[in-house]
């Protein structure tokens, strides 16, 4: 056993050569592959965590969206309910109005009908009253009453005279129709005629007719003016006056 410097040198060189070669074919690729895998694992874990986080976020977002949608739905429901209520109220109002209108119309119709019936009733009543009055007067009137009425007329002929004198008629002869309930004595008629003639300064032609329906009194017609002092005429005047008053 002796020291061999060549051997030592060779072994050192061997070591250096092996170190160089192994660095090329062993350490570098192994280190690369290990680090690559670590990087991949870290990346995968990071990705997984990211994905998880994203999923969580997505879930949260979805939940939020869902809540929002629910809220919106609730709002819409509420809105539609309100609208429906509003519509209902509107419809109800309209219906009420319509009903009121119809009611009014009906009322108006009823009123009109009522009025018509009332007036009819009134007319009937008046008619009946007049008939009754005429019948009554017919029963109680006689020639004396008739004469009294005529005399009153003759006495109060001022109105007739003034009315007739207002009409400027060229004709000399004035036609007067005298309708009487009972036949008048010729003297009375003549006196009346003469009184008128003297007051109007006109010739008067008197046409006397008898009409029992007048009950009592006379009716004078000159031109187109009628002076009715008969009882029937009075009753009719009263009836028409009553008819007008409501």
């Amino acid at each position: 056993m002796k020291f061999n410097l060549w051997t030592i040198l060779f072994q050192v060189i061997n070591f250096v050569i092996l170190l160089y070669i192994l660095k090329r074919i062993l350490y570098k690729p192994i280190r690369e592959i290990i680090e690559k895998r670590r990087g991949l694992i870290a990346k995968t874990v990071g990705d997984a965590e990211k994905t998880k986080k994203e999923a969580l976020e997505l879930k949260e977002n979805n939940q939020k969206e869902l809540n929002k949608a629910k809220e919106l739905q609730g709002q819409m429901l509420e809105q539609s309910r309100e609208e429906a209520l509003k519509d209902r109220n509107k419809l109800l109002d309209e219906a009420h109005k319509e009903a009121a209108k119809i009611n009014e119309k009906e009322k108006a119709l009823i009123d009109a009908e009522k009025m018509r019936i009332e007036s009819e009733l009134k007319n009937k009543t008046l008619e009946m009253v007049s008939v009754f009055a005429s019948n009554l007067l017919k029963d109680i009137s006689d020639e004396e009453l008739h004469k009294a009425i005529f005399r009153k007329l003759v006495k109060e002929n001022g109105k007739i005279v003034s009315d007739i004198s207002k009409i400027k008629e060229k004709e000399e002869i004035l036609n007067i129709d005298l309708v009487t309930a009972y036949p008048l004595p010729m003297d009375d008629v003549k006196t009346f005629k003469e009184t008128l003639e003297s007051q109007l300064a006109k010739k008067i032609k008197m046409n006397t007719t008898v009409d029992k329906t007048l009950i009592a009194g006379v009716r004078i017609k000159a031109y187109d003016m009628i002076y009715d002092s008969s009882l029937a005429g009075q009753i009719n005047a009263l009836a028409s006056q009553l008819k007008e008053t409501r």
Binding site: W6, T7, Q11, L18, I21, L22, I25, L26
Partner: peptide, 25 residues
């Protein structure tokens, strides 16, 4: 330069190591 059997054996060992490493990596 004296080449001993030690050195030759070491070369053989190195060849084996390199072959193995190469085949695996």
């Amino acid at each position: 330069v004296h080449i001993t059997d030690t050195v030759i054996t070491t070369w053989l060992v190195m060849a084996l190591i390199i072959t193995l490493c190469y085949s695996v990596t």
